[in-house]
Simulated assay, not measured.
Amino acid sequence: MTQGTVRRAGRRLSRSRELRNNGVVKNVGAARETPTGTPQEELATGERSTRNRVARSILDHGQSTVAELAGRLGLTQAAVRRHLDALVADGVVEARERRVYGARTRGRPAKVFTLTDCGRDAFDQSYDTLAMDALRWIAEREGGDEAVAAFARARIAAQSAAYRKAVEQAAPEQRTEALAKALSADGYAATARSAPTGEQLCQHHCPVAHVAEQFPQLCEAETEFFAELLGTHVQRLATIAHGDGVCTTFIPKTSTTKAPAATAPGTPKISDTTHNASASTAGRNPA
């Protein structure tokens, strides 16, 4: 889905998996033995498990000093510092000086460590539930499915300026590739590839897939926007929300493909013709 606020999605996903799953091993391959006979992969897994405990302790107890973390986790301060250094390097934790209230004592204030916004996002959040609750409220109070569809189109319109600019500046035969690059810059890992009678736009990541499972209007609005932007009918062949591995949109080669209509930045108008041509398969796998 097109969403300008997800530039760090790939980075957060990686940290999310690491923090939530203590058994993750990034380097998959033949286990290498340490001099003591312990597989290196087991040591790496243990390191990540302890690092996760350090981050979780900060989440549960708030900003913490090295001494406080060592006491809570039963680790040496040297071990805690080593894990904190790694978490800081990953952007999960940041160091601050502890605010002193009242008279300042001699010596430097103790350094405390706190989670960054990115680090906090690595733990379980309820954004999907919140979004679905909001869309249900819109459907119940503001006009049913059509109200949700109107919201989805308005959302796309508000986020479309960068995509429109990228496509308008590209040659006609390079517009799909230009759109894929713009989507990738927003964290959607999009690619464009040739097909026998056209091209396929593939999005390998969807940050709102769980919400789109319940509200396919999000996929439909995106498909409508792609059709308008590329100046031709497009067909959604598969979606992550439907259970497919990738969102795939087919763009046919036609001699009547037109350049996208000039529109004020940030306020594109999705035409009724585009809506009728594309919505029949948007958000669903026709197979």
Rank of each mutant, 00 (worst) to 15 (best):
V93P: 02
G245S: 11
T254S: 14
E222C: 10
V100F: 02
Y188I: 04
R108A: 12
E220R: 14
K258Q: 09
K253L: 14
F250Y: 15
A195P: 00
E47R: 14
E41Q: 11
N276E: 15
V80Y: 01
F215D: 00
R141A: 06
G23T: 11
N22Q: 10
V24I: 13
A122W: 03
T116Y: 10
V25L: 07
Q203H: 08
G37R: 02
D272C: 08
A259E: 14
T249P: 02
T256E: 15
N21I: 10
A103I: 08
P252N: 09
D272W: 12
L179H: 05
A154G: 14
A149M: 09
A161R: 11
C202F: 08
R81C: 08
A170L: 11
E142H: 13
A180G: 11
R236E: 07
H233R: 15
A180T: 09
G4P: 02
K258I: 13
A171W: 02
V6A: 14
F215E: 00
Q214M: 02
G102H: 01
T50S: 08
Q235A: 13
A178N: 08
C206H: 01
A9G: 07
R141Q: 08
R141N: 04
Y127M: 07
R141I: 04
S14T: 12
L183C: 07
R98I: 01
R98P: 00
A152D: 00
R236A: 11
A157L: 10
R153V: 15
P35L: 12
V167S: 04
L237Y: 01
T116M: 09
A185W: 06
L130E: 09
S271I: 04
R99S: 09
V112S: 04
H275I: 11
R51D: 00
L69Q: 01
R104C: 03
L237S: 07
G74E: 00
R99N: 04
A209Y: 14
N276Q: 14
G107C: 04
T256G: 05
G23N: 09
N285D: 03
P260G: 13
K111W: 05
T65H: 10
A195T: 07
T197W: 04
R175F: 05
R56P: 00
A238G: 06
H61P: 05
P39V: 03
E220M: 14
Q77P: 08
R193G: 10
G143R: 03
R20D: 03
R108E: 11
F225A: 05
R193A: 12
E47Y: 09
A139I: 01
D90I: 03
T36N: 11
Q174V: 04
S57A: 15
R193H: 08
I240W: 01
T129Q: 12
N52F: 03
E41K: 06
V88H: 05
A287I: 12
A150L: 06
S280C: 12
W137E: 04
A31H: 11
A190S: 07
Q3H: 14
I138T: 00
E142D: 15
R8G: 10
G37F: 02
P260L: 13
S194R: 15
A180Q: 05
N52I: 06
A139Q: 03
L13M: 08
E140T: 07
F225M: 03
R32D: 05
T65S: 15
A264G: 04
G23V: 10
L87Q: 03
I138E: 01
P172A: 10
